[in-house]
Design a protein around this nucleic acid. Structure first.
Lengths: 290, 290
DNA sequence: ATTGATGTGTGATAAATGTTTCACAATTGT
DNA sequence: ACAATTGTGAAACATTTATCACACATCAAT
């Protein structure tokens, strides 16, 4: 086997001197568009480098691999590792804890979730969702399920500050049909639904959709069935080393959305926040600092 | 052939709706380790995604390729092109969005918060907190404030599954003195308090402390005044480009704690989760999948 | 120039591996 | 109970890989 510590391309560079002319020509061709060319069939590589098939086979073994497939596997491994951003393979996050400690394992998983979630998000769709939520001419309904209702409430709390006409609906409660009576065309529903997807939520979404409301769905990577009715669907990776799924990534997306909406409605928000601050000062519910 | 203008991963995303369950599962797995996993043998991919070999063959054709090798060739082409473009611009999280987009700015700030928070955490204190929370001989009180009560509730929801004797107290409500009557020496209070720190929360903490209860405080980097009474104090960075503070880091810490407690009480938790699943199945409130 | 050692390409081929497809059973949701 | 989806096992098929023998080229040393 080849050494582990370094990349394969480094390894090839080091070996360059020990290679013969044709082999060197081949090696340089591999490095030319690395690593793509090494991932194709041996024959193609040989033709590409303008060397013969046995030369490839010989060189690969000279590099220390048992065969071409093993070489390819190594390249794939390296590629896999490379795609993860440098920050993601920060092996220990809690430096004082061993790398196997749950603090590090969990954090690593969440960072990976964030990377994958953000990597696949469509900024246009995201912006569109924010525009809809920021539009005060539309009534805003926020719908959460059994677990997600905490996230829904978090959004609700902030939207209350940013704009009027916000309603928090719990899909698990019996009261939601009443809210729906008030929903009219063009209104916006932000619906949270992660596995296990809730039948109530789906029904609510269907009714909302029938009434011509826009639906913004916040779900997981497997996507709630609601997504077929949704104007915008934002999906999150939620898998972590735990018996439950993680809401952290969703929280991040949510807060980003809040921040964005807040900016869109800034003049309104500013006035409302100041009003709130005054009230806090008067009620002395909060302390100013420390 | 697949369209050229976009990346294959985009294309897969677009097709997600037209795919069946197993195919979607496979597609998501391909995106998980993109593009490395798609460059290995078909058999390996199938095993990786936990689907059958024919499923892979079917999906690849559904995506518009003549066969798996053609699909691989397309992936290689894309990889080749990607490496060529000016220095990997992987400093952005949402690749499709400009680096100044709120999605990237916000995420970057949160990652930095996580890094700083985890970097300064004391694993021993953390473990101690988890032990206290997992101890079923102690009654567990969970206390949240105006904003943080959503986090408190999130913890409460999970602790309800993991163990008995859990109470959720809202410091802003008028009912909390009643709960306190039941608190006895050795009981545990998990208290959330971030700026602006709430007077009610502090009073509640004082009373709990007088009664000999242990206090686990979850706060921000400036630390709530409650920390003088706390047995364990976990502080989080919460600053983001927004008018409000971020709860994402706190959520991460919370979920890590939940995961850890869950492991400590695993035999109990397992039985309780299974009971819960049965109940869900019976009430048909939730759908099994997709 | 001749020699011999080394490296390289050719073409063929056997073996291995990977791919595609089939019929059928099992499962799942409607 | 029906239709759609999926997995199983197997077989047929295609491709790829690893080698071989051999011819040819190169080059350094005699």
């Amino acid at each position: 086997m080849a050494e582990a510590a370094q990349t394969i391309s480094d390894h090839i560079h080091k070996m360059l001197d020990d290679l013969t002319r044709a082999e060197r020509q081949l090696a340089l061709s591999v490095l030319e568009n690395y690593p793509a060319s090494g991932l194709g069939p041996l024959t193609a590589l040989a033709k590409d480098a303008d060397v013969s098939v046995p030369t490839v086979a010989r060189m690969v073994q000279k590099l220390g691999y048992k065969g071409y497939p093993e070489f390819q596997a190594a390249l794939r491994e390296e590629l896999k590792a490379k795609v993860k951003t440098p920050i993601a393979k920060h092996d220990t996050w809690a430096e004082a804890a061993p790398s196997g400690h749950i603090l590090n394992r969990f954090t690593e998983a969440v960072i990976e979730n964030i990377r994958l979630t953000l990597g696949q998000i469509d900024p246009t769709a995201f912006d569109h969702a924010c525009d809809l939520i920021a539009d005060v001419d539309r009534h805003l309904f926020i719908v959460g399920g059994r677990i997600t209702h905490t996230l829904a409430e978090y959004l609700f709390l902030h939207m209350q500050v940013v704009r009027p006409h916000v309603t928090h609906v719990q899909s698990t409660s019996n009261t939601w049909p009443h809210y729906l009576l008030n929903a009219k065309e063009g209104d916006v529903f932000v619906i949270f639904d992660v596995r296990r997807y809730e039948n109530n939520t789906l029904k609510l979404a269907e009714l909302a959709h029938e009434r011509g409301a826009k639906i913004i769905l916040i779900t997981d990577q497997w996507r709630s069935p609601v997504h077929q009715l949704a104007t915008v669907c934002l999906s999150n990776r939620i898998v972590v080393p735990s018996a439950w799924d993680s809401a952290t990534t969703t929280m991040l997306l949510l807060e980003t959305m809040i921040s964005s909406v807040q900016t869109l409605n800034w003049t309104q928000t500013k006035a409302r926040i100041e009003g709130l601050e005054d009230m806090f000062d008067q009620t002395k519910l909060f302390r100013k600092f420390t």
